[in-house]
Design a binder for these strands. Sequence first.
DNA 1: ACAAAAGTGTTTTCCATACACCCATGC
DNA 2: GCATGGGTGTATGGAAAACACTTTTGT
Lengths: 228, 228
Amino acid sequence: MATYKYERPALAVDCVVFGRDEKALKVLLIKRGLPPFKDMWALPGGFVRIDESLDAAARRELKEETGFADVFLEQLYTFGAVDRDPRERVVSVAYYALVNLQGHQPKAASDAAEADWFALDALPKLAFDHKEILRVARERLRAKVRYQPIGFELLPEKFSLSALQRLYETVLDTSLDKRNFRKKLGEMDFVVATGELESGVTHRRAQLFRFDEKKYQALMKRGFNFEL
Amino acid sequence: MATYKYERPALAVDCVVFGRDEKALKVLLIKRGLPPFKDMWALPGGFVRIDESLDAAARRELKEETGFADVFLEQLYTFGAVDRDPRERVVSVAYYALVNLQGHQPKAASDAAEADWFALDALPKLAFDHKEILRVARERLRAKVRYQPIGFELLPEKFSLSALQRLYETVLDTSLDKRNFRKKLGEMDFVVATGELESGVTHRRAQLFRFDEKKYQALMKRGFNFEL
DNA sequence: ACAAAAGTGTTTTCCATACACCCATGC
DNA sequence: GCATGGGTGTATGGAAAACACTTTTGT
């Protein structure tokens, strides 16, 4: 049971950052400036410091490498194959983040590495086991979006019902019936109309809605169950 | 990005072992023989070796401390609060296991520590953050049992439908309608009658069924969806 | 004969799905 | 006036839920 006797794996965090851009779902990747896998694309991430929690490490790396702060961030899975890093043993706790792409420029990372958004169906080759991590993240997002209201994290604060529907269609990779979709949302009191209208469009302006976190929490406590 | 410069957290695995005993759902705990938390109950677990994967570490510890091998084992969540171990920084990858309690005696662990089963509603005080780990494991079990056929892992190979129903009622903490439950199972071709009957009971003998893994896998590929 | 659990169908309710047309706006 | 997406209600089918009595066995 003595800890210090044995050699320890290094411990890292990696973040899968999902963003929605117009019609496609995208992931933020970083171009590696150092070996191994130099010049290859990879998930943002880094080593966990001795005095920070895993969540804190994930948030710090996300901030440092992509500029995002105060976003939805949740632990995904921990990847620990012995040879997943060619240098030495590295165990990585993966997280996934959901961000609203509007307003956030595809900013270059603070440490001068290149950063860019990639559509999920046009990904480059990835370093390490990051392809696998991304696969698991995508699966999780797809599963979770159906029973927890996390889809809103990918939209601006105010959004049209059509935008929300397109998002669900993208994530779930299906098409949904417009009237049925709206009917179900109409029953969810935590999606509230702001009274404002969409602008700058070449057709009828859509009404804008927002997600009311407080109302949602209140309903949850009363046993409400979010579904699709 | 240099790994070796920084002090590393220790990396451990902990296992939540669920077992079903007659009517109650139970967890296997180990009495700690060493400080910290000496003589307190804790989840079986230990440190990850440099040359084994996380899954392998979990299986090894499970075997060493409880004697269970070849059981359902799945990664749960990774706990990384800075102060979760009073000695030093330890990050723990938690797993949960489902075992069939029949036939496996509440065996004492190989390293002479005391091991015992505890009903989930009569738990002792636990070491470290193991209460929290157990809470998360229970939540996961409850959620997963509804859409994946993992409940069978907690039963002997041959079981009666009543036993299966009682198991679901225990895990989900609800009561289920007998006829509806049997109707649904009747539609699932991978729960097959063995033709054998229960024995040693003081009432009508129940027919015994078994879970047919192959048939289940075949159905899965055709898009079948297990539900409750 | 009685206690204890096994086994068995039908009806009702509700939710998911399918489906088509008019409206507002910019060009 | 036309192209583009916004917005709206109803009918149908199928799954979930509710529900009670007979059978078998041991004592």
